[in-house]
Structures are given as structure tokens and as C-alpha cells.
Nucleic acid binder design. Structure first.
Lengths: 410, 410
DNA sequence: CTTTCTTTGTTTAGTAACTGAAGAATCCTC
DNA sequence: GAGGATTCTTCAGTTACTAAACAAAGAAAG
């Protein structure tokens, strides 16, 4: 008296939890319909989640002719996570609850070339201060997400931080983190295919395909910043020519503005002064302010950047068949209002699958701290939605199978 | 006495079968190592596959100090599949065995604007002829894969063909099919992340991420043909400017050649004659022959196209973090030797993740009929590696959960 | 040839995670 | 307050696995 056990792609508990999170509020019957599992299974899984304190019954739906549905919601204050974003010159810390909402936030100047052990100690102190500032019990903090542009370089750093804080540390790319953050805080559908276009000083993107993070074999997926938009364009640090980042990234915009004497003066750019390596972020903000004040040259520079970014976004959307594109990162936080209409116009008119489905383009509501929030979301996800325990399919299969074949007579 | 049952991302039977296919030859111990399952499980699963006739024991490996391993292989002639590629002007039929090897192949001129029912009847006849030509029993043919550039338009056609042939019909995109074909016939690793860059008259790509086909929410994933490589480039039929396809697709190359009086004459292009809409494929082949004969203008045109295609491929590889790029499709079958070195050079020097892992670029050994072979491979895959039976996560979750919430006092 | 060790593959009993179906609880309608 | 509708729980049964013991086949050493 049974069909075959259904094979799930993640553990059932995790899938149910994720659905509750994504739906915001849902009943057991809703979960039955959404998962395809039976009522009995949902009943026991939900009981487990309630016992753990992760989920709570929060009310009733109106009757549809019989017993009213008991509504379930994530118990947002049951667990917390710390997210840390190591930017070029700043460290941003956030403490979020289970729903991905920020409950505490601090931001400090980066530590340049300081001794690693001193930096670790300082960061551990700042994380402690973050947690203590809102009186959250330590054992409710699931872990710490540490994200940066080049996470691979922070491997040992992450392990040291794990020892210093006593929290499990996970590393990731800042653009991927931003995408996961958007997904976790529920702006986009649970299974939608979307990318977070991340504009910091460079240009990148984090990618979720059908609700699942796609990082690529080496974690470089979404590298749209080095899409070529001009075969004879300027040389890029990556070795190629005409890369989106070299043509239109914030660093390129700032360089173009600094070369314009009159704009430099009007916007008060550091480039005009003695400090040669003035922070790009500050000057980009100054250019953006100048544009808002009505400076035509500043606006023209930003719009030129937006046009390049728009065709880059078009390529990204075409290759991945995106449903949603979220603009995020510090530079979009500053100048998003200039970029958004240009990107929307390009994608409305030139996205190749536009007849098949809509591509919604929007600005992140928390673009400035998206990566730090995402870092925390990665912790929530990795702790609550355990990594796929599927088949191990090692790449070195060929190397593993050396025995020489020897034909058998039969 | 047990750990938790391992959750697999596809059914175990399918995963094991896929591993045997991908490895070519493997022992039970090899499968244990590759899957992470225990010997007992592998033992029973393999017995089932042998009982079904899908797998056979084909010999022994040399001893490594104990009992010799019994080697397992796909029983290539246990099942067959038909693949049909509807191209602009040709229909290509192949019959492949379980290993994806072609056992029969026919190619016919397309049927233009003929009555649909007549076309169905003709195709059913030709499929029958294909199967009968090698004396394969009908019940060993798993199904028919029908691929084209715009599969969505062939839905009803597919159903009619299903009735006419008595074979289950699956539809897909020709570029995706080509990628699956490469995967199935084992040129690329079982879990590698790769794309098949498909050059027909247009430019497209089929994508497999970690061994799993990625089609995107509307089946448009891999649409690299409309990546923008020049903001002020020529207008494309898609509505945008500077698309890869408009700059460098075979149709564009042919148009450029036809505009060149001397080249037209030298290569014997149809463009010079009265027929205005001469087939692009024929002229592209003529240009390629001219280039091989040493015509500098033909070669220059092809190399220009290759340079554009190379930067387009770079963008594709960057966004998807590819490990392997296979060049396939009729136009690469003809002119692959011109394109391959240009693409290799570009990707060796400008692929952004080149420090993290190799990106291997190669020409498909069966580029000319890759789509038809892939169409058959899709059947093999869909019949033998049943679609993921995971959780249903309906998009209309919000619509499904209408009951109005009503806060409970507690 | 015998003993001992290594490796491969099979069998068996036990378990987690489901399903299906029956039953209990709750609400609406008449 | 009886009857139907709907939601949720309980429970026995099935499936797909695991762990561990066992059997079989060969290698190495004396």
C-alpha cells in the first residue's frame, strides 16, 4: 500500500522551511500542494520545525467551507546570522534575523596593510559589539558569512576568524551573496531565475537559476564585467580589450571624470588634487551628486556608463534566460536612479525571450549593504537548508579507474 | 545500525546508468567510489540493470592485489533512439544506439510550405525506412527526438508525429540537443560544466551545468547570438544593434561576401546570380572552400567572423564559468578549422577564470549532424534517466494561497 | 601446495523517510 | 444540532538505503 518514496533534491525539512520562508505565510495544506508530499509527512515535518522553534503558528485563514487553515510563519527572532562584507576600504557588519532583516549594522574603515592577527582580533571585537548591541544570545547566532570580491584569498583568514569568534564562518563572493540576500529576503519568487547585477567599484553578478545558487566550477559564474562590448575598446586589467568594466565600471567613470578638468572642479573630485589614488567610491558619489544637481557632463558620463551596462545586462539576461534582474551594490545605491530607466528600456526592447516571459528589472531596496546582508543570508541558508547531499560524482573519475582492461573470452 | 538514507538528486538507478555511460567502462567498486553509495546498493542496482539488458559484464581488470574487478559497460545495442533535425531547408534523421553512436542516417530536402498532414505522413515513412534499413526491432526504439531552432512552434506537429510513428516524441532546441549529444557520447566529463557553441545559419549555444541541462525558464538559455559586441553595430532582426549574429553569423558572412563582387565571382556565390534568397548554407560552404583554396578575401571574412565569435564565446565562458566549449553545428563542420585556433587563442588569453581552471575548446567530431544525434540523445536521456522527481514548487504559489489571514490572539 | 592477506562482490537485518488510509478536530450551513 | 466539508494527525506498510558479516577470487610467501 504505497507508491515509491519520492526522491527530493534537498532534504524535506529544508525544502519545507524554505517554502515557509519564501511564502511568508502558508498553511499545512498549502505546503502539501506546493511540495507534492502528503499531509501526514507535512504534519510531522512541521511539528519538528515548531519544536525547534524555527516556525510558529500565527493565526488562521478564513474558512473555505470547513476547518480553517492554521497559518505558519518563520519565527524570525529564533535565530540570527552575522554578515561581513570586506570591501576595498570598508568593512560592513550586519546582524540579521531568520527572515534576513537587519537588526544591527556597523561599518568601519578597512585595515589596509595591518598585521593579519591584529585584524582578526579587531574584527572579532567588532562582531561581539554588533551582537551585544541588541542583546542577542550568542547561541542563537548561527554563524558568520564573510564575503569579498576574491573569497579564495581569504581562506586562512576565515579559519582564524572562526577560532576568534567561535562562530562557523562561510566564505563567498560578494555578488553571489547579494543575489542570495535578495532571494532570502523574499523580493523574488522562490524558484525564479534571476541575477543580482552588482556595481561596486567593478561590475559583477550573482546568479540563481530556478531558486538554486549557481557559482560555477570555480565560483566565477556571473562574471559579466569582462564581457566584451567593443573589440577595439580600451585595455582592461584582465588582459582583454573592451570589457564592460573597463568601458563603464565605476572606476572607468571616475577616471573619465577626473580627466575632465571642468567636471573635476565642479564635482570636487580628488583626482584634481595631489592624492593620486583617491578612493573611487567617493569620487563616484561626487559625480552622482553633481549629476543630480544638474551638471550635464556628469549626467552624460553616467548615462554613457548606463548604456554600456544595459547591453551587458542584455547579454547576461539572454544567456541565462533571466526572469528578474536586481540592481544592487554600493554604486547602484548611489546612482541607481540614473541606471534603472536605461536598463529597463534596453531590456524591454531587446531581451530575446521577451515574447516568452517578462523580465522584471528593479533596484534593490538595500543596495548599499546588499553584500553584507547576503553574507548573513548565506549562513542562514547553509545552516538551515543543508547543502545538497546528493551523489558524489568526482571529476577524477578517470584517474580513479586505472585498472587495465583485459578482455574475457566467453 | 544505519545512517540517514542518502538523498540523491536523481534516482539512483539513473545515476548509476549515467555513470556507466560516462565512464565507458567501470567496475562495481568504481561505482561505489563515484557515487558514495555502499557496495550492497550498487550490487542490487547493477543486477537490475543487467536483468533489463541495459548493462553487461564485459571482462576483468587486472588485479590490484586481490580479486579482479568485473568491468561493466552499457549494452550499446539494447536500445535505440531516433533523432530528427528540422533545419531551414533539410531534415536529417539518425538512428543511434544506447551509446549515442549513429547506426543509420538519412538526410532529405525540407518540405517548405507543404500541407502539414502530408509532411507528417512523409516523415513517418522516412523514420520507418531509417529503422528498417538496419533491421532494428521496433520495440527496441525508445522514442523520437525532434529538434529545431524554434521548438515551441512544433508542438502540435510533434503530437501528430507521435501518432503517426507510434513513438514517443520529445521536442527541443537544436543547440541544446547538440550539447546533450556531446555529453551523451562521452566527449566531456559526466559532471563538467560546458556549452556547445552551435553555428548553423544563426549562432546559439546549448548549456550543461555540472552535467545537468540548463534550458532556462522559457528554453532560451544560451542565446549568445544576441550578445552585443558593438553599441553602434548593424541592426539585427531581433531589434537590437551590434548582435554577434548580425556581425559575424554565417548569414552575415554570406551577406558580406555577396557584396564583394570579386569574391562572389571567385567563390561562385548565388548572390551574384538572379536568385536573391539563395541558401545561406550553400554560400557559406562556398566561401569556406574559397578560403581553403587560398582566397585571401574569403579567409579575411571568416577570420573577422571568428574574432567576433571568439569574444562572444569569451563572454559566454565568463558568465557560465565553463570548463569545456565544444564547437558544433553545420557551419563549424565546414569552417571549424578557421574558427578553432582563433577561439582558442582568445580564451587562453582572456578567459577570466583561467587561473582557476582550464577551459578546453574543441571541435565536435560530428559537427554536421550534432543536432540530430543530440535529438536522439535527448530520448535516451529522458527514457533512461527519468526527469527529476523532486519537489513540485509551483510558481503560482501566491495564487494558490488565497485565504485571507486573520491574526490570532494568543 | 598450503597458509595468509587483500580485494571484490553478495547477503542480510535494520532504519529513515516516505505513502495511503482511517480517524479526529474544527468550522459552516441549514 | 445534524450533516457535510475541510484540515490536521495517527498509524501501519513500503521503499531505498546502510552497516556489517560473509563468500569468492586472486596474490604473496613459505
Amino acid at each position: 500500500m504505497s507508491g515509491p518514496a519520492r526522491v527530493t533534491h534537498a532534504s524535506t525539512r529544508a525544502a519545507v522551511l524554505d517554502l515557509i520562508r519564501a511564502a511568508g505565510m502558508i498553511s499545512r495544506v498549502g505546503l502539501v500542494n506546493a511540495t507534492g508530499l502528503t499531509g501526514g509527512t507535512i504534519s510531522t515535518v512541521v511539528r519538528g520545525l515548531i519544536d525547534e522553534g524555527l516556525v510558529a503558528e500565527t493565526g488562521h485563514a478564513e474558512s473555505t467551507g470547513g476547518k480553517r487553515r492554521v497559518m505558519l510563519q518563520l519565527n524570525h527572532f529564533a535565530r540570527y546570522a552575522v554578515g561581513v562584507h570586506l570591501d576595498e576600504a570598508r568593512i560592513t557588519y550586519v546582524l540579521t534575523n531568520l527572515g534576513g532583516a537587519v537588526v544591527a549594522r556597523i561599518s568601519r574603515a578597512g585595515c589596509g596593510a595591518a598585521e593579519s592577527s591584529a585584524v582578526i582580533a579587531r574584527m572579532a571585537r567588532e562582531v561581539d559589539a554588533l551582537i551585544d548591541s541588541v542583546g542577542v544570545e550568542r547561541d542563537r547566532v548561527l554563524g558568520l558569512g564573510l564575503v569579498s570580491a576574491r573569497p579564495a584569498e581569504h581562506h586562512e583568514f576565515g579559519q582564524a576568524l572562526e577560532r576568534a569568534t567561535g562562530l562557523p564562518v562561510v566564505l563567498d563572493n560578494d555578488a553571489t551573496a547579494a543575489a542570495i540576500g535578495e532571494h532570502w529576503s523574499g523580493g523574488v519568487g522562490a524558484t525564479s531565475t534571476f541575477a543580482a547585477l552588482y556595481l561596486g567599484t567593478g561590475v559583477g553578478a550573482g546568479v540563481l537559476l530556478g531558486g538554486t545558487t549557481y557559482r560555477g566550477p570555480s565560483g566565477h559564474a556571473g562574471e559579466i564585467g569582462h564581457a566584451c562590448l567593443d573589440l577595439d575598446g580600451p585595455e582592461c586589467w584582465c588582459g582583454a580589450r573592451g570589457c564592460l568594466e573597463a568601458l563603464a565600471g565605476p572606476a572607468a567613470v571616475v577616471a573619465q571624470a577626473r580627466a575632465d578638468r571642468s567636471l573635476s572642479r565642479a564635482a570636487g573630485l580628488a583626482g584634481g588634487r595631489t592624492r593620486a589614488a583617491a578612493p573611487v567610491a567617493a569620487d563616484f558619489a561626487a559625480i552622482s551628486r553633481a549629476a543630480r544637481r544638474g551638471n550635464a557632463r556628469a549626467l552624460a558620463l553616467l548615462e554613457r556608463s548606463a548604456r554600456y551596462l544595459a547591453v551587458g545586462a542584455r547579454t547576461l539576461a539572454n544567456v541565462l534566460d533571466l526572469e528578474v534582474l536586481v540592481l544592487t551594490g554600493p554604486s547602484f545605491a548611489i546612482a541607481g536612479s540614473v541606471y534603472l530607466p536605461v536598463l529597463r528600456a534596453e531590456l524591454d526592447s531587446a531581451f530575446i525571450a521577451r515574447d516568452a516571459h517578462r523580465l522584471s528589472v528593479r533596484l534593490s531596496p538595500s543596495a548599499a549593504s546588499a553584500s553584507a546582508i547576503g553574507a548573513a543570508a548565506i549562513v542562514l541558508q547553509s545552516e538551515l537548508v543543508p547543502r545538497q547531499k546528493g551523489l558524489r560524482l568526482p571529476d577524477d573519475l578517470a584517474a580513479e579507474e586505472p585498472p587495465v582492461f583485459q578482455q574475457l573470452a566467453r
